[in-house]
Structures are given as structure tokens and as C-alpha cells.
């Protein structure tokens, strides 16, 4: 019971960060600022949801799979953010703030 409510709180909090990432994506002025919102806020949102779901998992195998999913998404999101920013810089289309 305790565990379930803790899990619900974590999942709800994770959702708040996903919403924050989406609000940033919509409101921030340029592509680089939007990448900040997506890599950081969504990353924490996923970590919180993964933690909440892992608390309700039935077996250690499931917990391990959830950890793997979180780990690979975290690494991929930082790398993708870097690649998108680099492409934008090399194409010369993004703002240069001068």
C-alpha cells in the first residue's frame, strides 16, 4: 500500500517533468533552448516514471529491464541532442546570438 502510493507519486512527478519539457519545446525561442528542455526535463521525467514502475515490478528481471531502458534512453537523448545541435550549427541555420 505504502509502496503503491510512493510509486504513484513518482509517476505523477515524472509526468509533470514531461509536461515541462513539452511546454519548453513549445515556448522556448530557438532550437538550442528547446533541446535543453527535451534532454533535461524529459530525462528526469523518464527516470521518475521508471523508478515508480520499478517499485511495482514483480521480478528482478523486470527491474533490470526497466533500468536498461532508462539507461539507453538517457544516453541516446544526450547524444541525439548533441547531434541535432551540431547539425544546426554546421548548417548555419540556427541563431548565432551576435
Amino acid at each position: 500500500m505504502m509502496l503503491e502510493s510512493l510509486s504513484m507519486i513518482l509517476i505523477a512527478l515524472g509526468t509533470v517533468f514531461f509536461i515541462a519539457g513539452t511546454v519548453g519545446l513549445l515556448r522556448f525561442p530557438d532550437i538550442y533552448c528547446r533541446l535543453h528542455a527535451l534532454t533535461k526535463a524529459d530525462g528526469l521525467g523518464l527516470a521518475l516514471i521508471a523508478l515508480g514502475v520499478a517499485l511495482l515490478a514483480d521480478s528482478m528481471g523486470e527491474v533490470f529491464r526497466i533500468i536498461l531502458i532508462w539507461f539507453f534512453v538517457a544516453v541516446a537523448s544526450a547524444t541525439c541532442g548533441h547531434l541535432i545541435a551540431r547539425y544546426e550549427r554546421r548548417s548555419g541555420e540556427g541563431p548565432s546570438y551576435d
Binding site: 515556448r27 533552448c33 533535461k40 530525462g43 528526469l44 548565432s96
Partner: peptide, 24 residues
Amino acid sequence: QSVRGAVDVSRRAFSPRMPLRPGF
């Protein structure tokens, strides 16, 4: 640090004034 980073960017996203001074 990553919690701080996410809280920081979320605060900026939700803030009506949206405090940003971006640059490289």
C-alpha cells in the same frame, strides 16, 4: 546535478517571463 538541471529548465519553461539569455 541532473535533477537540478531538469528543475531549472522546467522553472524557466513554466515561468511567464521565461528568463533566458541564450548564447554560445
